[in-house]
Design a protein around this nucleic acid. Sequence first.
DNA 1: AGGTACATGTAAGTAGTTACATGATTAC
DNA 2: GTAATCATGTAACTACTTACATGTACCT
Lengths: 192, 192
Amino acid sequence: MSRPPQTAIAVLGALSVAPMTGYEVRAAITETLGHFWHESYGQIYPALHALEQEGLVARATAGKTSGSRFELTEAGADRLVELLSEPAESPPPRNALLLRLFFGRLLGATACRTLIEDARRRATATAATLAAIREEVEADPTDPDARFRLLTVSAGEHAAAAQIAWATAALAELAELGDDETWPTTRPPSAG
Amino acid sequence: MSRPPQTAIAVLGALSVAPMTGYEVRAAITETLGHFWHESYGQIYPALHALEQEGLVARATAGKTSGSRFELTEAGADRLVELLSEPAESPPPRNALLLRLFFGRLLGATACRTLIEDARRRATATAATLAAIREEVEADPTDPDARFRLLTVSAGEHAAAAQIAWATAALAELAELGDDETWPTTRPPSAG
DNA sequence: AGGTACATGTAAGTAGTTACATGATTAC
DNA sequence: GTAATCATGTAACTACTTACATGTACCT
């Protein structure tokens, strides 16, 4: 298989909920998986065509005027379970914030503080979004996927809370510093 | 600039500590930035050549028998600070674990538990590694970068602790479930 | 008739990995 | 002498984004 299997999971997974156009698949992924997953059109449309070739999705011609909805075939449903069972390997870490902070002495304490404040702001916004999602999911007791979705929401909430706590502690730590003064290289015992 | 600027930061940053061969740059990045950053040879060698062309690094011919060490030029040091000052944009999220968990009903509760246990194991191992790094950094009071490094270690510790806490809670939640029985949906108990 | 949202698709470029080929140096 | 490690590099491939081109449907 040449097409990225992770994209296939997201696309097949979206179609497992309901038949959709490519446009709708993209929207569904952004809306429901948005806080931990992402796909662009440049991935989705080619993936849809490849999946169609393999007989894993089919065009559902019924009803719609423009565009064509794709639906999961039986083979597609089987394949989805198969793909979900493959080991979950995330890409190697690339945290642009920590990379900058690591060389923080060169960057300067003020710029570091700004970076951390930005990160805290983003984490706070994420936490608010997740709270809204949680409420929405909890409001619908008929959704058989609710508890699994809440598991992913919870993961996001834990991560966001940790990020906020870290940022707050880091800012307190950095507050000791004057503007762009670096710390003394070999600190005398008294300052501490 | 054609070469990825993030790679340039990592490479220039490594060379800001000491002159190194490409091989050593790779090792330095793996060892000291490893828990939040990654570069492969396929990135490092081309980056080194491009940086040399731009006059940001130069070959330090002295001393070494095989290979040639690269050192930061003055322009390179300036450029590093410039690059560090650029906004820290991390790639869009792609969490393979949460993607699978989101479709956990299709995957089955048992497989989900395994995934989460793996994640917890990895987070525990990460926490141990970070504790060792922390000790090492704290043991050397002369390192002017120590406090910035500890900031990145702390970020990792917070994230790992959050992951462990989430995984433990999630496993408790999933423990309610029988083998691969899904939770009751709206449908009646026996009607397939 | 004009704007907005829906919808599809691709080309060009950027990013990054992996596998391979090759050889020098060091340690035993 | 030979195995491990140090060292350099590239080609082929996979993954992914962005910008663009194009058109339809619906609302006012």
